[in-house]
Design a protein around this nucleic acid. Structure first.
Length: 462
DNA sequence: ACTGTGGACCCAGTAGGAAG
DNA sequence: CTTCCTACTGGGTCCACAGT
């Protein structure tokens, strides 16, 4: 509420909020439905949103939108003054300008026939494509209307042009009124699709605190089982990423002995550690012989470890109830590194170490996006540490905020098909070409212009 | 002019501690 | 117990210098 005004003398029904970024992607109106003066609390905020994908035009008439006109975009706004971004005040706010522009855009409830003519459409496009510096803070408004961004297409209503439809890429590039700078591209990406955390859950891996003792390879596993068949009961598959490799994971095994604090082992209630050690050695002789080599390191595991004895992990029992994410197909990616190297695991009950995160999903189009050049560019722009190191941190918070573009079923299928080509033939020499194909499709998903793609290909970050 | 060696430095990757 | 991040490790690269 502006200074000098109180809730009482504002009529919420007279307020319409326009939410858009400089590219009008997405573009939304919000207004208070059933609002009455002095009764703010009963007002329901209604949102009408458009994206480039969405050609269905919602008319103000259809929704009884209380707005009758739009402010005219002035010519001088054609010149994008970077110094006033992002905090430039919205010029629409000044009363004179609002007053002066009343005739410029008239909604179809007054002239429903005339807007159908091509000239009219052209005229409204011409005026409205001009970018308007908008206060970014206002655009942070998040509503449950995220799903509106994924409204299915409906081309039938294309001829009803009631609201300026400025989302026309070719116009923006042809007029070259918008120099493509990395900050703009970053901003555009941030306003595309929905954040990853909106549709998916991210799960952390198991903190082993001594990888070399607990993780073994196939040969060692076979050896341990040959020595003592019981060993197989406490050996679980673990999906580790391969160094400097996307898509593929390394198959390894983890000696999973849950902490006595979570599970009752024959040695769990021994007072004396050497006594417990003896029982452990009798129960799992081969594994006991293996872990004893790391006794000193394991014993030095410090605070935070809830393991009761040195041969135990601090984790709970490996069961579906405790770790449902390990029992599903999942995308696995590193917690930090020089680049995103996501991979896909269908290995049943395969756990992951705490150097990785996983997203339980079989949506390979998400994997395609994560491993694309576009996402790499985004990560380089967004995921650096405050200390300025070279590492990128794919932390849970960072990843949850990452914008994932809307994908139609067809697009999902196309991307999944290509990703499957790589997954089923991980060592063919054509992989770089296939990855380029994926990059191109991902650029398409995010509706990037040629100039923006060039920016990413050249690796120019903000 | 070319090759081999070793030290210095850089950087990617990781273990594990701190904080919550 | 989870999440994040720091400090460490170890591999890679560069470069000066010595030997062939």
């Amino acid at each position: 509420v502006a200074e000098g005004l109180s809730e009482k003398n504002i009529n919420p029904a007279k307020i319409t909020i326009i939410c858009a970024n400089r590219y009008f992607r997405p573009f939304a109106f919000a207004y208070f439905n059933n609002a009455e003066p002095g009764n703010w609390h009963a007002a329901v905020l209604k949102i009408l949103a458009w994206t480039q994908d969405n050609t269905y035009i919602q008319t103000s008439y259809e929704h009884k939108l209380p707005i009758e006109s739009f402010a005219e975009f002035r010519d001088e706004d054609n010149v994008v003054d970077e110094s006033v971004l992002p905090d430039a005040p919205d010029s629409v706010d000044t009363p004179e300008e609002t007053e002066a522009s009343l005739e410029t855009f008239t909604t179809p409830q007054h002239t429903p026939d005339s807007v159908d003519t091509p000239e009219e459409t052209e005229a409204s496009l011409e005026t409205s494509t001009t970018p308007q510096p908008v206060n970014r803070d206002r655009q942070q408004i998040r509503t449950d209307g995220d799903n509106l961004l994924a409204t299915p297409q409906n081309s039938e209503s294309q001829q009803v042009v009631s609201v300026p439809n400025p989302v026309r890429e070719e116009r923006i590039t042809n007029r070259s009124i918008l120099p493509v700078v990395p900050a703009d591209l970053l901003y555009k990406l941030q306003n595309t699709g929905a954040p990853l955390g909106y549709h998916w859950n991210i799960h952390a891996g198991i903190n082993l605190r001594c990888v070399k003792a607990f993780i073994i390879d196939e040969r060692k596993r076979e050896y341990l089982i040959r020595e003592d068949a019981n060993s197989s009961k406490i050996i679980a598959p673990i999906a580790r990423r391969l160094k400097k490799k996307k898509w593929e994971l390394e198959a390894a095994y983890l000696i999973w002995i849950s902490s006595s604090l979570h599970k009752q082992w024959p040695w769990s209630y021994m007072e004396d550690e050497s006594e417990a050690e003896q029982i452990f050695a009798q129960t799992y002789p081969a594994i006991s012989r293996h872990l004893i080599d790391y006794k000193d390191i394991l014993k030095s595991r410090g605070a935070g470890s809830k393991a009761k004895y040195y041969w135990e992990l601090s984790s709970r029992e490996l069961k579906r109830e405790n770790y449902p994410e390990f029992y599903q197909p999942k995308i696995v990616y590193p917690i930090s590194g020089s680049a995103m190297q996501a991979a896909y695991s269908t290995w049943y009950a395969a756990c992951i170490p705490n150097t990785s995160y996983c997203i339980p999903t079989d949506d390979l189009s998400l994997l395609a996006i994560l491993n694309s050049k576009l996402f790499d560019w985004y990560a380089r722009a967004q995921f650096r540490n405050s200390t300025g190191g070279s590492n990128l941190f794919f932390t849970k918070k960072n990843m949850e905020k990452s914008p994932i573009a809307f994908r139609s079923e067809n697009q999902k299928m196309e991307l999944s098909y290509i990703v499957n080509l790589i997954l089923s033939n991980p060592n063919i020499p054509e992989i770089p070409d296939i990855e380029k194909e994926i990059d191109a499709l991902v650029y398409e998903l995010y509706k990037l212009t040629d100039a923006e793609i060039a920016l990413i290909e050249k690796g120019i970050n903000p």
